[in-house]
Design a protein around this nucleic acid. Structure first.
Lengths: 208, 208, 208, 208
DNA sequence: TTATAACCGAGACGGTACGTCAGGTCTTTTT
DNA sequence: AAAAAGACCTGACGTACCGTCTCGGTTATAA
């Protein structure tokens, strides 16, 4: 999240309550006001905290919102549903449920927009949000390999490229349907999508 | 874009040059300053136009940027490359080329973020940007049906759902790879992606 | 008021109605909005006239308001009330009645404020407003001399200085009471004032 | 001048230097630009202060100018010159000297014009400017009564009306000569004026 | 137990951009 | 050629937030 350069032994320690209150207030403000309407002064007031306290911990609006939104993705899990298809459907629905929240929608997209011009922000998003999602793809593949649904990978670099492709296809499709098409990611859509994806991957793995 | 309620016969007409200069200036400002750095005052100065002239035509930053970015998608075309796979690869590369431009990246994402809280803006984006892309999917399918690569659709509602699915998968994957993964959409990736997509669609069309 | 350089024989003649309508509208706007709230656009709309028509006749807000307010002073008259004291009381009451009007108060003072930095405006005010008042002092003195209440003047320059002094004392006291003290110029006040003034002048004319 | 509703103990205190710098800058701007040319942005720049700092202390141009000009009248004094006539001549010359300053001329008149439509502003002018002048009239009368030049007042309400009359006559005549007639208030004029005034008052006090 | 150090709230500070408005000018069609 | 209409440029308006700073005060560890 944020840290002081070195652990100072002396002085009053930072309030842990303040941190939590600020993140809660940030999400509430995102829901009510959206990204553009969110101001740090407003967040500070909601959190019952001075503006300086906020700036002591985060560099600005972008960083704060990344942390506030990243927490939403902590709940992403991959319970074993027995088959690869069921696992994928499960995680897609979870992901869609998070994306459907207003604080995620406006916050995440706006922060991505800013990240196109800010490498540090992009890195922060990657570690806080993206990698947390990608890990599920890796877990799912490993589990499917144990089950025998997928062959063990031979070439590591090919395998990495395939994971990236799957990740972009899954996350991209869900994000696009939610935010651009503004259509619900419901059970029928998820089944159709999963079917196309798995059949495509299976076909591509076979000799052309 | 924008229009007066009724064609007023009298009075000085609006300058067409101003319109063009403003959109050009907006794209230039997006490239140099990004979404958050872009100010309407700066755009007006670049365009050699008064701020009021700008506000007379657009309601605000969002609307202006939508129009400025939408023009980029006018160049999307679907030349006949002989096969469905080649057509898809061609349009994906075109789409990726547009998305790779800095003015499209920061502008488009930010405007999408705002659109999550503004229905009118969402509609404007749909008509100006999204539908222009979706049209290519429809054209591509029709052409493939003529070639015999795809069967003619039987149920119209199923067909529409399939088109939507394809659109979200194609556009979503490209957008996600470009903006979130920040990896290039190059020839190898496009070929892998197209192969998975087409095999998946073919398999899904066949009886399960 | 205003004039074209030469009587142009050709072209559409200026509307005389427009002139009157503009001045009426200006006074109405002064009453409703005051000096600072008065805008030329508003005046033009009230008068049913285009803004250009207005600028063709007056150079700006100051000049327009001077003309609009000057018309109020046309009604100043000096009917013969039989004695010098009665004449003075009459004209003071008339003057106070005009000053009590809201269009005169805010308009006149503001224009005077501007005139401190604009010689042309000061001259315009003198000819349009001030001289019209001063004339009454001259008439009153002449009438009093005919009646024998005042001796005929001997030294013209002394006489001129005396007229100026009287004028500043009369107009100044009325203006100050109305606008600064914000107290009414009523019958008792006028009588007290006139008594002090006339006794003072009589005493000063006598050898000290 | 201005004050927060209650003395807040916490928070950064307001800069006293800023206050002084703003008032100095306001007077300088009045001299250079006049009332209509004065803008709060310009004042802020001159004072080396942000525009918001200015608005935090004053509600607008009118209030600021009143305070800036009021300070000029702090120097009004009534040194004992031995006789009532000399005292009057002294204070009139002082008052005229202040009025002759360009910052007083344009600022004061314009603010008076605005005050005709703004009771709060009128009250502010009264306490800041007018009462400071009127006090001199009271002091002068008291001193003359001690000297025996004037009888002690019998009826308080008559006395008050007389003070008001004197005040309007003195201040009105000086203001009118300075701003309307645009003639200098020099020694000869002041002597003539004082002579008329005192003789008039003496005559009026005697039985008619 | 007393420094000392970092924290905390409050709120003023110098700035930047906002979106609006008025002042004047210019361009078009109509009279 | 004047008129009505309305777009145009300029520049000020008053507001909102920004991110920084200066206060008076509050916890902590360290001497």
């Amino acid at each position: 999240m944020q840290s002081r350069t070195s652990a100072s032994r002396t002085g009053r320690p930072r309030s842990a309550e303040a941190d939590a209150a600020i993140l809660v207030a940030t999400r509430a403000a995102l829901v009510e006001l959206g990204w553009s309407g969110l101001t740090l002064g407003n967040v500070a007031t909601r959190a019952g905290v001075a503006k300086t306290t906020l700036y002591r911990r985060w560099a600005g609006k972008n960083e704060l919102v990344v942390d506030a939104v990243a927490a939403l993705f902590d709940e992403l899990e991959l319970p074993d549903r027995g088959t690869l298809a069921a696992d994928i459907e499960g995680v897609v629905l979870q992901f869609a449920a998070i994306l459907a929240r207003p604080e995620a929608q406006s916050g995440l997209m706006a922060v991505l927009a800013e990240s196109t011009r800010d490498a540090a922000l992009r890195e922060r998003i990657r570690t806080s949000v993206v990698d947390r999602q990608k890990r599920l793809v890796l877990e799912g593949r490993a589990r499917a390999q144990v089950r025998g649904e997928l062959p063990p990978e031979t070439d590591p670099s090919t395998a990495a490229r395939t994971v990236d492709l799957i990740f972009d296809m899954v996350a991209g499709a869900v994000v696009h349907r939610t935010l651009v098409s503004a259509e619900p990611v419901d059970q029928p859509w998820v089944q159709s999508f999963t079917r196309v994806l798995l059949l495509g991957l299976a076909g591509a793995a076979a000799p052309s």
